[in-house]
């Protein structure tokens, strides 16, 4: 199972990861983070294959992806 976390401290809601995700499971959250951006959240952890495309496109290093054995 893969867990993807988006660190709200870093996310600026630029949305590039949303478009990059082949499974289309990333979306803006409704709330605002401390910087006033809508951070991105993962809607469906199970669907995440750990392809890391979202991490690759993220300009702010906000995404961490971990695969549990």
């Amino acid at each position: 199972m893969v867990t993807l976390t988006v660190d709200e401290h870093y996310c600026k809601g630029c949305g590039l990861c949303i478009v990059a995700c082949p499974k289309e499971i990333l979306q803006f959250a409704r709330h605002l983070n401390e910087q006033g951006y809508h951070p991105v959240t993962c809607l469906d952890q199970e669907a995440c294959t750990g392809c890391t495309l979202c991490y690759v496109t993220c300009p702010d290093g906000a995404i961490t992806i971990v695969k549990d054995k």
Partner: peptide, 12 residues
């Protein structure tokens, strides 16, 4: 537990 992606050590 295997890290597939995280902020690199080359960045603060």
């Amino acid at each position: 537990m295997k890290i597939l992606a995280k902020r690199p050590k080359g960045l603060t």
